[in-house]
Structure formats: structure tokens, C-alpha cells
Design a protein around this nucleic acid. Sequence first.
DNA 1: CTGAAAGCGCTAACAT
DNA 2: ATGTTAGCGCTTTCAG
Lengths: 335, 335
Amino acid sequence: MKVTIREVAIKAGVSPITVSRALNSPDLVRPDTRAKIEKAVTELRYRPNPVAQGLRSGKTRVVLLVVKHKRTYDPLLFEFALGVSDTFQQNNYSLLIHLTPDGSVSVDDVTGRADGVILTDIEENDPRIEKLARHVPVAIFGESTLAVSQVDIDDAWGARLATEHLLSLGCQDIVMVAGDGRALYMKHRIRGYIEAFTEAGGNPTIAYGSLDLIGGETAIRSFGRIPEAIFCASDGMAVGVLRNLTSLGIRIPIVGCDGLQLGEMTTPTLTSIKLPFYEAGQKLAEAILDGIQGKEPVNIRIRPDLVIRESTHYWEGRTSRCDSSRNEAASPTLT
Amino acid sequence: MKVTIREVAIKAGVSPITVSRALNSPDLVRPDTRAKIEKAVTELRYRPNPVAQGLRSGKTRVVLLVVKHKRTYDPLLFEFALGVSDTFQQNNYSLLIHLTPDGSVSVDDVTGRADGVILTDIEENDPRIEKLARHVPVAIFGESTLAVSQVDIDDAWGARLATEHLLSLGCQDIVMVAGDGRALYMKHRIRGYIEAFTEAGGNPTIAYGSLDLIGGETAIRSFGRIPEAIFCASDGMAVGVLRNLTSLGIRIPIVGCDGLQLGEMTTPTLTSIKLPFYEAGQKLAEAILDGIQGKEPVNIRIRPDLVIRESTHYWEGRTSRCDSSRNEAASPTLT
DNA sequence: CTGAAAGCGCTAACAT
DNA sequence: ATGTTAGCGCTTTCAG
């Protein structure tokens, strides 16, 4: 049933080791012997046994991806996983998933099973990092002061991009609708807005709310005025803001954050900061692969892009400062 | 660095095989020797090497889960994966993920890497099933006439549940808003509705549309009348229907399908057919584990549950038939 | 350029 | 109850 290197060797009239060489370092084998071996390999449908290779080499060609289960699933996480997966497939690595409610992993989940670990949902001073990094290369999606490979999305930059875009439209009274600043990435977004707006001479104003549509719908009320433009810390919030304002017959430039498909389905469609989760997955996969090969840890911050859609496009090219122009915009619709 | 069974044996003053036995079949080892061994194990922090065990046993204690990447991510898939993952962790199995745009897998992705495969996104006469099943135990999330383990959600039953619920409210003119019937599960939902409604003497009417909010908003127009009740083939559609009708000031019983969190966030909250994806994941994991142990394939259909919320609760207990009562319901809101 | 020996870490089968 | 032998399938020495 299972053909081993031995059968191939016999069929090709050589020794097993020559077969191994023909497969791993073809240059060390004379072309004609190699041809015989390749013939035997295809005829017998020989495939090297990864487990045996693993035992020999001490490598599994597997990486463990640790994911925390969230009740409200984040579609971006799926993009991320795809980026990781694609990169691994290109490198003949496999992806082992460790899915737990709290993201916990033990060293035993890794040693002997995987050559490295990718950690997601990193918290400040995340205890898992040091624990694992003593035994196996670690790469994290997030940030840490420890000497492990880390890839993160530059949220502050994204917020700056959004703010500067609104500034470029001539808006001077730009407010932000944010989530509570417990999560690191939210702190960065808030900081990015504050820095960019302050540099432009603005006086930052922030309302806080939940990251979903409701948060947007309600948070905006707390400003006590209609600002000239709004930067929302999530697309969900932005849709809420959009809806609320539209129901009041108000239309002002709005920028969301995430770059979800959701933003293509609203009326007007939503300008947003597109977070490069797929790319982050790729980079993280490369980072851990490098780490496995003994290279030094890398520290990568990926900058998001601004995707301009209708919610701000309307004002582009105008030189005058924004006005809270009232118009008969259709009810914003999720589609 | 890496402690082997040999070191433990030396430290405990026994032979390696005795250590192995103490770990795998403790009853075959005298308690005092066992104690010595256990002491050595903990002191040296010995962990058996899974790769070596794998080579010896021919088993990897890994199962491959094949998932097709969809652009619009389905949160239910995540629930499913969690069900699989939890069950595997309880059985000391690991979960290898194969994520591809089209769901393709080759035999080489499996042999030597995993003891079995779980296939998702099954199509009619899915060619992957037979190809893989010749080499390794296969369990599918879906249905097939082949002799492989299969777990599926009884969509027809769910549709029946929804229809009968609406019937029980006294409604006689119940329509369905469905997706196009290419996917098997949609065929089942449509069939379930038709059967249940026909049995009750009704005359089935179906409108088709995309599975999202837009599909619901538009599909309902095609009826040319306001029915007494609506069964929607997805929660997304149901929200669209809800919104459309609410904007007309109409409120009738509506049942969705999926049981997403979305349905808890609308006004009114949405009665829905809760699809047991987590349980399906568990069952599928059990099925493949059984298959690996040589047991016969199983064929399981899991019945969804009806979750009653405000979108139909309003009418419960009424004995009269439904009327398309008009009221001043608040605009249905996604939150 | 090719082969023989040896062993990665673990555990059946067969002793004792 | 414990140890010896041997081998899972592959590849790194070291010889030829």
C-alpha cells in the first residue's frame, strides 16, 4: 500500500540513499541514474513520508496558529488566516490551528508538533509570548517589547490618513467617534487622529461608543453640534453615523475604518481606512518561517490605505471649507 | 535540550521500554518502578515526541479540515470550526487547516500528514470525496451517496419548523423569500416550506433574491401583495424584509433562517431557525475520529431549532388568523 | 558519483 | 514485571 524509498530504490536498481539524493539534491546524482529514479518514483507514485522526514530532521514543517474565539466574528481574521495559509502553502508548510475561547496555549501544544507559533490577539505584556519563545520561534500579530518577530498594522497611521484626507477636503471641525481605548489598536487610532488634527491646528473632539452601528448612531449625539466631518474608528460605527445623519437630512464627509465589504454596500458607499489583514498574514508567515531558519526577529508595521468612496468623494476638488450641506440623500442602506 | 525516553530510563534506572510502558499502559508496570519513572519524567520535563510516535504507529493524530475561502465570510463557519476544534482537543487530536479559494485538495496534502479529512462546502457529486476516500477516512459536512461519514443540517426540517410556526399563529397566506436554488441547502429549505405549507392546504409562493439584506428588501416587492407572514431563507434577507415592511408601516410575522447574532440586534428582534453549526462540527469531528478507528461511516442529519423572538412573538396566543396589522413600529434597526 | 552504516525517538514482538 | 532486539522511513556521516 504505502511505497517507501526502498521500493523505489529496488525498482530503479540503486540504493535508497541515492533515491533520497536524487530527490533532495539532484545535482549530486548522474542524470541517467536520476532519470531511472524519477521513472520509478512516478510509476510507483512514491511520496516521501513527512513524518519520517520530520523525525530525521527534527522539523515538522508545521506552524501553529493560535486564535482566540470571539463570539462576534471578525471577517478580517479570516483574511488574515488566508494570508498566512497562502504563504505557507507556497513554502510547503502546513497550518495547525489552535482555537480556544481565551487564546491560551501550552508549550506542549507546540513542541514536537510545530516548528513555530503565530500568536494573535496580543495583549499588553502578554504572558504567552515569553513562555513560548523560550522553546520555539514565535511571531506575533501585535506588538511587544520582547525580542520576537512582530507584525502589526499601523493604526495611528491609518487614523492620520483619515484625518488628513478630511483636512484636505477643507474641513476644520473634524471629530472622531471611537471605541473605548482599552485595546491597543484603538489607542493608536485615537492618537493618530489627535496628532494629525493637532498638527493642523485643530482641537480634537472624541465621542466614545460601541464599535457597531449602534455605537455610531448614539455617539454622535454627544457632540452637541454637527461637526464638519467625522472620522469613525470602525466601519460599523460609520454606518451608524451615516444613518443617523441621513435621517436628519445632513450630509458631511465621513471616513470609516476597517475597509470591510460593508462599506461598499451602503448608500452612500463609505470612504474607509482599509486594514491590510491579508498582507499582515503573509508577513507574519514569512516572519515565522525566517525565525525557524534562525534569522533575527523582524518588526514590521504595515500601513493601511485610504479607500475613497462616495461618503467623502462628493467634496473632493472643492476648495472651500466644508459646509454641512443639507441635501436629499437617499436613506443610507445596508445591502 | 530535548529529553528523550532514554534519559528518563537512565535516570529512573530502568530500560526505555519500561518508561514507554509506564506511560502508555501503567498497569503493566509495578507501582514502585512506575513511581520512579514518573519522578524522572517530571524532573526532566520529559514529553514524548509526537513525530517519533507517529512514525512508529503510522498515525499522526492530526485531521485535515478543508475550507473554501469565501469573500463574504460566514460567521457560522467559525462556529463550526470551533465545534471541530473543541472535540479534537478533547481527544488529543490536532487540526490542520487547508484553506484554498476553491476548496481543492490533493491526496498528497493528506497522506502522511493527517489520519483523516473533513470536507466542507460539498457540491453535488463532489469529485474530491471519492478521490480522497480511497486513501484516507473522509467525513463531509454535507451529503453524498458515497459511503463516507456525513453530517448535515436538516434544512428541510428547519423550513418546516418555520412554516409550521407561522401556521400555528393562524397565518394562511405564508410566502417564502428564498435564494436561488443552486445550493443544495437552499433546495432543502424551499422543499421544506413547500411540503409543510402544502400539507396545511396552502398554495406556496416564493420570491427569489440574493441572500443579503438587499435581496430581502427587493424580493418582497415581487409578490404584488402583502402576505400574512413571511419565511426568509436567511437572516440577512429577513432584516431586509423587516426594514422594507416597517418603512411601509406594516408589521406581519417574519421568520428568518441561520440564527445569527444579527437577529438579536434588530427592532423587532428576529424569530429564526437556529442552525446548529457548532454541534455539526462536534459530530463531524466524532465521525472522522470513528472513521480513523475503522468504524463504519455514519450519516447524521441534525435538526435545527426554532428560536422565537419579537418578530413573531407578537402574534403568539392569538387564535384569530393573522391580519396585516398596521402599527407605528419603530424603524427596524441593525445594531 | 554511489553505497554502507548508523540513528532520529519510540514501541511491537519476543524473550527472560 | 522488565529487558533485548529490531525496525517504522528517511537522511547524515563516512567510505569506496
